[in-house]
Amino acid sequence: MTEKIFLTTTDALFPQIGRSVSIGNKKIAIFQLSDGRITAIEDFCPLTGGPVLEGTVSGEYLYEPLRDYKISLLDGRIQDPDEGQLKVYELLLEDGDIYLKDASL
């Protein structure tokens, strides 16, 4: 059985606004897209070394706040012409609660 970790509730999210959750020493940025989907990525940009939480969300992309890198919130890939990858976390939604599906960070 897969271990799950409670992160937050859907009521605590606002469309296109990030919410930070810490698990141990890992920071996770959770976003609710304008179409209602909820995604979670690591709150760390490998190109700037800074957090991504305060970036601007447009569609399924996040524009990193320091250098405006375009990051897919679905697969974590930094878009061309830049390169890089952020970890995407698999979520489980149950009765308005959001869980990290696999606890191995």
Rank of each mutant, 00 (worst) to 15 (best):
38 I>H: 00
98 I>P: 09
37 R>V: 00
3 E>K: 14
64 E>L: 02
92 L>P: 01
58 S>C: 03
50 G>H: 11
53 L>N: 03
43 D>Q: 04
52 V>W: 06
22 S>A: 12
16 Q>I: 05
11 D>P: 05
85 Q>R: 07
67 R>Q: 08
17 I>R: 08
65 P>V: 01
57 V>L: 05
62 L>R: 03
86 L>V: 04
18 G>T: 03
39 T>H: 04
52 V>Y: 05
87 K>P: 02
81 P>V: 02
50 G>N: 12
13 L>I: 04
64 E>N: 04
62 L>D: 09
28 I>M: 06
44 F>N: 10
48 T>M: 08
27 K>S: 14
59 G>K: 04
7 L>D: 05
28 I>N: 04
58 S>E: 12
101 K>L: 15
57 V>P: 00
64 E>W: 01
102 D>R: 13
93 L>G: 02
105 L>Q: 10
73 L>Y: 00
32 Q>D: 04
44 F>K: 11
101 K>T: 07
62 L>Y: 07
78 I>G: 01
99 Y>G: 11
45 C>H: 03
25 N>H: 13
40 A>S: 00
105 L>N: 09
28 I>C: 03
100 L>S: 13
35 D>S: 02
12 A>D: 15
104 S>V: 12
85 Q>T: 05
7 L>E: 08
26 K>F: 06
99 Y>R: 13
11 D>I: 09
91 L>M: 12
